[in-house]
């Protein structure tokens, strides 16, 4: 049985305190939410450590904000354009991020990048939906992957751009690194 982490109990409690600020009578709902959060977090294996450095954060935040603005502008343009310019497709992507927080974070960030969201993922293999089928898609994912690796201070285990399409070469690379 996994043990409940005291640190995460405090983190979730702090989040609630900030959200509910002066309303201490809100602790009935807050207590339930915090406990549920900790239990789910523990149960889903969230105890792997993540080390986010200040330097990594400073590299990531401007990139993320910039991409958020582009993503919003891009989709707003397409939604309001009379001809609704779309060329949607799915693309496979194999991530080199190690299992754990950085990979989950990457999968979530894909959905906030312009024109991409993650539709499925199993182990290293992701299925990404692209709003426009262009060569840029994979390159944007690689850039994001590098930024996330920098944020968490982890090394990519597969050279960038490895997709299930060239799984033979990826497999050999994995073996060499693993």
């Amino acid at each position: 049985m996994r043990r409940i982490s005291l640190v995460w109990l405090l983190v979730f409690a702090l989040v609630w305190i900030v959200l509910a600020a002066p309303r201490y009578d809100a602790w009935v709902a807050g207590g339930i939410a915090v406990l549920t959060g900790v239990i789910l977090h523990t149960g889903l294996g969230g105890r792997q450590g993540a080390r986010i450095t200040l330097r990594g954060l400073m590299g990531f935040v401007p990139f993320f904000l910039n991409q958020s603005v582009r993503g919003g502008l891009d989709v707003a343009f397409r939604a309001l354009h009379p001809t609704r310019p779309l060329d949607p497709t799915f693309t496979p992507y194999r991530t080199g991020l190690p299992e754990g927080p950085s990979r989950i974070f990457f999968v979530n960030c894909i959905s906030l990048l312009p024109g991409t969201f993650s539709a499925q993922f199993h182990d290293r293999d992701l299925r990404v939906h692209l709003l426009t089928d262009d060569a840029e898609g994979a390159r944007k994912l690689e850039t994001l992957e590098r930024k996330v690796a920098g944020l968490f201070g982890v090394r990519l285990e597969v050279p960038e751009g490895g997709t299930p399409a060239d799984s033979d070469s990826s497999a050999t690379r994995n073996e060499r690194h693993g």
Partner: peptide
């Protein structure tokens, strides 16, 4: 404006996958 654009995308985009783009990106911004 971006909420409005996101809603326009939700109504105008052709399938559920494209609509998700409109919701996540435009609404977040």
């Amino acid at each position: 404006f971006f909420f409005l654009a996101g809603t326009a995308g939700l109504l105008r985009f052709p399938d559920v996958y494209c609509r998700l783009h409109a919701l996540t990106k435009a609404d977040n911004l």
